[in-house]
Design a binder for these strands. Structure first.
Lengths: 368, 368
DNA sequence: CGCCCCTTTGAGAGCGCTCTCAGGTTGTGT
DNA sequence: ACACAACCTGAGAGCGCTCTCAAAGGGGCG
């Protein structure tokens, strides 16, 4: 903190007006005569006046800050560019509105109380949360504190879908998955496996649903005849929402955790169960890179023997050998949307807002 | 912000004491009789009292928050797990001290004024900055605002080394580079190229220096006879510090930018200049992955024809084919150190602090 | 027994800002 | 010329908390 920062009072004295007038000018200057406004601006510039945020917050009850909560107790966050990208979008939108970004990492479960206290403590005006798992306590904490929240990805806790005014930004995961699988079918692949994400997240559930729907529609066989994939759970009961894995072809599914290592393991599992498979759709690029490694280790050529399609289209998709065919989603743009949505909500405008769901598109590279 | 949060006054009334006493209890309770202390604690619990941070800040002049400034106008940040990892370390240390982390991205040069205003505005008690380029205006802004700063990586602006009380956490980049190159020499490689990072960052300069020193000591040839590497600048005049590329073997050097694409280009350049090279030391894992791709494209086998060593030992190093031999640095730990150092500085303790330089170590995998 | 000192508590003055409200000035309509 | 409205401006009351300072209470000691 610099030495003695000038106060409103000082500026007022210098400009020869009252504190109130300076305050008005500093906050937009509505209803102040031109000449005075200029005089005040000059005084502000000369003194290098910067408003004291604490004093302001004390009376307005607005902090001008928003929390971004990253809840990934598993250290996935740190190898996944997904969060970094989304953060960039969020940061840009917030900066444009002169709103600060307070970053909250939930490193392990012991952090929850601290985070809860923080959210309840009036340090921020609202919060952005993403990639929540089904039973995450964060939404409850925020609700209790009366904190406006915008979610990244459709929330999946029981009853979430029915909640009025629930705000989130998501991509149409189901459609994206269908895109991927139809592409594979179109290239003549018939035994298509799926490496799912953690099935307590809606994005993973929806992608699985898309995979099954496309398979059913395309009439191709995943693991035709076998009754569902061993490693796959079916999304659980509490979720009758759009993304329910629901009907469709059972397929050939192994559950990963969105990490490369998880992709590696899941791929090995699929290979063990269906040595003749000729394609895999992984629910994330990172898992696809793992799959690539396992395939290579097992002597399968990509895409000659097995085609691979990922999801996300982040940098790592272009680093692999061969580069990944993948489903593109505008991650940064989703971050921007989330921030704008929250800002609008905080602005207190009367307009109702609805969740935003963006449309993914397929990017064809060399892996499938 | 939740409905009507109880104030100190309310707690005081409930406990039948004065505001001052409640304040004392809330802030540690020194000098308050046991019975009263308990009574106050009970009242706090019953009312669910949480101190108003703004009011506190207004009088104490302490915000309890620290800024983390990420200044990478080029979008490198978003594919580089380096920052995410460091952030995790920082976040953990700050959380332990109940200090908030305000994240400031500098997305492009136009953001600087906003950031400057923020730093000068008393929103935070101190700042953490990393990977600054030589001419970054941030340190100047912070200094002007009288804001305590801890740097990640030895600052490189002219005269920085001479600045008293300059606080930073770095790894011994030079030693790390020597480790890498000596390893290659030890395996019989003789024509060793180097893909440098942007030479306006000390880490890149120091690694280049280590490469040259090891080469000179080892008596091996980089580009023996040729006068320095075409793409390499020598770190510029203003930097007589430990990391000066200084003497040593000129080597065979191409400058990258710490990104995979940069690594790709630099590798192509090296290959063009020295088709017979048998090893490359890249100043980051990400550049090494790019180099791997270029080598593959040129039909070179790794490590049979060309050995590759990276730097950082972050996740991507294990994702490549073959997995990268690389120089490990404890990135998360460095983040933790930075945060602790700043916290100590803010604590106002009298103990002088010195910069911290950690020791890297070599991790041998399959690429070289 | 009286004095002094130490511990514990409360009163009250701000921290810097916003915002309401009243007072002053200027302009318009009749 | 007067009433009235519209527009500007300033005074002042807090926002919730910390911290100084003085008062009150309790012992120990001469």
């Amino acid at each position: 903190m610099s030495g003695n920062r000038p106060t409103l009072e000082a500026v007022a004295a210098r400009a020869g007006v009252s504190r109130a007038t300076v305050s008005r000018v500093v906050n937009g200057g509505a209803g102040v005569r031109e000449t005075l406004r200029e005089r005040v601006h000059r005084a502000v510039a000369e003194l290098g006046y910067v408003p004291n945020q604490a004093a302001r917050t004390l009376v307005t009850r607005r902090t001008g800050a928003v929390a971004v909560v990253i809840a990934e107790p598993e250290s996935r966050v740190f190898s996944d560019p997904f969060f970094a990208r989304q953060l960039r979008g969020i940061s840009g939108a917030l900066a444009a509105a002169d709103t600060q970004l307070v970053l909250l990492y939930v490193a392990d479960r012991e952090d929850y109380p601290r985070i809860g206290r923080f959210l309840a403590g009036g340090h921020v005006d609202g919060a952005l949360m993403f990639s929540l798992h089904r039973d995450d306590p964060l939404p409850g904490m925020a609700a209790e504190a009366g904190l406006p929240v915008v979610y990244g990805g459709r929330p999946g806790w029981p009853g979430a879908a029915a909640e009025p005014g629930l705000l989130y930004v998501d991509t149409d995961n189901r459609a994206g998955a269908e895109l991927a699988v139809r592409h594979l079918l179109g290239r003549g692949r018939r035994r298509i496996g799926h490496i799912a994400g953690p099935l307590d997240q809606t994005s993973a559930v929806d992608r699985l649903a898309g995979y099954r729907a496309a398979l059913a529609a395309g009439g191709a066989a995943g693991e035709a005849g076998e009754a569902g994939g061993g490693g796959a759970s079916y999304g659980g009961p509490g979720d009758p929402a759009p993304g329910h894995p629901g009907p469709g072809h059972p397929g050939l599914v192994a559950e990963g955790d969105f990490t490369p290592a998880g992709g590696e393991r899941a791929m090995a599992e699929l290979l063990a169960r269906a040595p003749a498979l000729d394609a895999v759709f992984a629910a994330s690029d990172l898992m696809a890179t793992g799959a690539l490694r396992t395939l290579r280790a097992h002597g399968r050529r990509v895409p000659d023997d097995v085609a691979v399609v990922g999801y996300d289209d982040l940098e790592p998709a272009t680093w692999t050998e061969p580069p990944l065919t993948t489903v593109h989603q505008d991650v940064e743009g989703m971050g921007t949307s989330m921030a704008r949505m929250l800002l609008r909500r905080l602005g207190g405008g009367p307009e109702r807002q609805d969740p935003v769901v963006t449309t993914p598109r397929l990017v064809v590279r060399e892996s499938g």
